[in-house]
Every structure is written in C-alpha cells, then in structure tokens.
Design a protein around this nucleic acid. Sequence first.
DNA 1: GCCCCTGATGACAATGGTTCCCATGGTTGT
DNA 2: ACAACCATGGGAACCATTGTCATCAGGGGC
Lengths: 133, 133
Amino acid sequence: MVATTPRNTRQRRAVAAILDDLDGFASAQEIHDILRHRGESVGLSTVYRNLQALVDASEIDALRNDDGEVLYRQCSTGHHHHLVCRACGRTIEVAGPTVERWADGVADKHGFVDVAHTLEIFGTCGACAASAD
Amino acid sequence: MVATTPRNTRQRRAVAAILDDLDGFASAQEIHDILRHRGESVGLSTVYRNLQALVDASEIDALRNDDGEVLYRQCSTGHHHHLVCRACGRTIEVAGPTVERWADGVADKHGFVDVAHTLEIFGTCGACAASAD
DNA sequence: GCCCCTGATGACAATGGTTCCCATGGTTGT
DNA sequence: ACAACCATGGGAACCATTGTCATCAGGGGC
Ligand SMILES: [Zn+2]
Ligand SMILES: [Zn+2]
Ligand SMILES: [Zn+2]
Ligand SMILES: [Zn+2]
C-alpha cells in the first residue's frame, strides 16, 4: 500500500492545464472537447481516469448536476461548498461554518457515524440571466 | 392547461403502496424488485413513470446517492432535508431554517437568480454500524 | 352493465455517461 | 540505451434511465 507517484505524461499535463484555465465546473466530456479543439487530443478514457485520480488526491472537486453528470473544478483547498451557475458553470466557493456544525450535530444526535454531507447551491448567474432575455 | 387526473390503475396503486410501506429511500429498481416478490409485478418502465409522476406532483421526494442512482421516498410535506443511512436507506427528515436563509442570502449577494439548493447528510445508522462489526 | 375513447402499460430498443479491457506506447530508474 | 511497468486509447461493456408503440383497461356516458 505504498503511494506510487503518477507518471508525468502529456495527457496528464493537458488535463491539469485545462482545469487550471477553467473558471467554473465542467464535465469530463466538455474537458475532452476542449482538449480536442486545442489540438492536444486526449482519449476520453484517459480524461476520465485522470480526473478520477485528481479527485482521489483531493486536488479537484467533483459534484453532480441535476442531470446526473459529474462536473469537475480546481478549487481552493479545505472544506467548502459551491454556488454554481446552471448555464455556464461559473462558480463561487462558499464556506458555511454554521452549516457544518449543524449537519454534524444532527447526525450525531441520531447516532449516525461515518457522516458526510453534500450542499450545493444552483442558480443562474447575472450574466447568463441578462443574456437570456 | 387543465390538470388531468391520473387513472387509478393497479400498477399506480401498487407503487404508491410500496412507498407507503417503506420507511427509507429506495431506488426504482429496488421498488420494482419488491413488487415482483410481492407477486404484484409491474413493468419497470411503469415504475419509473409513476415515480416520476409522483415527484412532479410533489408527493414524494427524490435524491441521488453517491453512485448517481435516484432514490425515492414518501416524505412529509414542506421543504426539508434528509439524514440518510447509506446501508439501509433509513431516513430522518431534518429542517434547517438557518441553512435556508443562508443559502438564499449567499445566492442573492452574488446576483444569482432562479436559485435552488441540495443538502443531504449521509452516514451509517446505529443499527447498521452495530451489525457491521 | 356495456361501449368506446383515451390514457396507461410493458416488453424491448435505444440512450448516454461512465467504466472496463487489453494490446500498444511512453516514462522513469538504472 | 535498456528494461520494466504504468499509462494510454479505442472500442466494447455496463447500467440506470428513457423512448417506442402495439396492446390493454379505467371510467364517463349511455
Ligand atoms: Zn452563468
Ligand atoms: Zn460542508
Ligand atoms: Zn441503516
Ligand atoms: Zn433547504
């Protein structure tokens, strides 16, 4: 169970570069398309693998939209939640210390262990709302 | 745009009965299996359709687990969230007025409109934790 | 109760995101 | 440069969910 260092491949660098450039959340397929259009084509399987590896290493965040697609984003470190635009993916990280304590307290009160929570706020950002008139 | 009353079919009654009996969240496929074992077999498509109709009518709640499956449950009315056991589905409804205000405030402050939020707490209930020793 | 219209059903196909498989290629330590 | 051996990618497989459409049955009108 020794932690193996992942290899520094062109594909791994390309995926990381996209995540670095992108501002908001994006799906694996969107990232795959962006790579294709940049001429740095990477196999879809490889995109998925590298994204999963980054999630496992806690280097990026993942969440599911209403359609069940998984979206990825390079976030700041530490526990936080997101305010996400459904149209363009623009994201604002939010911290809610009160919510954290409340969630843990609720679970504890009812004898639940190994507790985690999901909390995301979805909406339409000002720019997308303006362009939708 | 007149609201049409759904027909009172055996299948619709059977699905509703299961939801009435079940305590926690369950997937469409689980409900389909339960119906089969009860001898009240209902087509899988029909299970999905009726569940979707009940969700649209706000008569049941739906949420996604970590695996991306949609789970359904007959809940009390009004806006609330859930503390759900990952192993057995046992569910406790929780209300967090503070969280509601906080989420709306965050979205408003950043100019987001058409806002909704998801908040679920997942864990292992006492019973399941005890039987896993 | 009987008919008829129309919505509901169900077996199967199709969809779509994601994962699996495995032969090939590229990376890294020596 | 060499030789492991991990990573890649193209396609198949997976699996929850949705679509299709011929057939069925609820229930309003009689
Ligand atoms: Zn936007
Ligand atoms: Zn949190
Ligand atoms: Zn449990
Ligand atoms: Zn809420």
